[in-house]
Design a protein around this nucleic acid. Structure first.
Lengths: 107, 107
DNA sequence: ACTCATGGTTAGCTGAGACTTACGGTAAGT
DNA sequence: ACTTACCGTAAGTCTCAGCTAACCATGAGT
C-alpha cells in the first residue's frame, strides 16, 4: 500500500522512532515529550506532524495542551505490507536451500 | 530490536523499496535489476549493500554474476518490533474511546 | 483586559545520503 | 593470453530532511 510507504519513511528517523515508542508507553503532550528528548520542542512538533500524516499517531486537544497517542492504523499498514512479502521470502529461501543441496555432487 | 532500526531505515528509500519488491517477486542479478530502474547500476549496487547489511536480502555468486534474493530475517525483525507496540496501540485507542464517551455530559 | 503557558509555523543553516562518473577486479569464452 | 561481461568501490556533486531560533496563535486563570 502507498500508506505503508509514508509509515516506513516516518519510522526511519531515530528521533521519530523514540517519540513513537514513548507514545506507545504513555500518551503525552508535546512539551512533555520534548523535555525528555535531546531536541527542541519545535523539532518534536515537526516530527509529530510527520507521524500524524503517516497515520502512526493521533492527537486530541486538551485545553491549551495537546495530547498525542498511538494510532493503530499505521502499524496495521506496515504489517500488511510486510506480510505481502513474507511467503515470497520463505519461498526464495526454500528454493535457495534446495539448489544448494543439489550442488552436493563433489564426493 | 536494533536490527529493526537498520531494516526500517533501509526501506525508507523509495528506490530500495522497489528493489526489495522486485526481489520478492523474482531473485535477480544486479544488472538485471538496474535495467528496469531509472538509476545507474552502481547505484543499485550501493542500495543492495544497504539492504544486505540490514538483513533484508542475501546474495549468491553465480559465475561472474551475482544473484540477490530476499532474506526473511529482516522482515521478521520489523514484524517483531511492530508487534511490541500493537497491544499498546489498541490500549491507547480503547482508553481514548472511553474518555470520549464519558465526555457526553453536554445535553 | 492582561498575563502566562502551551504549540504550530516559518526562515535559514547544516549534515547526511542518493546519484553519477571513473576505476579496478574477477570469471567465462575464444 | 586476450577480450568481454559482470560487479563492487572511491571520489565528487547535489538535493533533501532535520534542527534551531524567532514569531504568532490560542486557551486558562487572575
Amino acid at each position: 500500500m502507498d500508506n505503508a510507504s509514508n509509515a516506513l519513511a516516518a519510522l526511519a528517523d531515530p528521533t521519530r522512532r523514540t517519540i513513537f515508542e514513548r507514545l506507545a508507553a504513555k500518551p503525552s503532550a508535546v512539551g512533555e515529550l520534548a523535555r525528555g528528548l535531546p531536541v527542541s520542542r519545535p523539532a518534536v512538533s515537526q516530527h509529530l506532524k510527520v507521524l500524524k500524516e503517516a497515520g502512526l499517531v493521533a492527537d486530541t486537544p486538551e485545553g491549551t495542551s495537546r495530547v498525542y497517542r498511538i494510532d493503530p492504523r499505521g502499524i496495521a499498514a506496515i504489517r500488511q505490507w510486510l506480510d505481502q512479502f513474507w511467503t515470497d521470502a520463505l519461498d526464495s529461501f526454500a528454493a535457495f536451500a534446495e539448489a544448494e543441496s543439489k550442488e552436493d555432487d563433489t564426493p
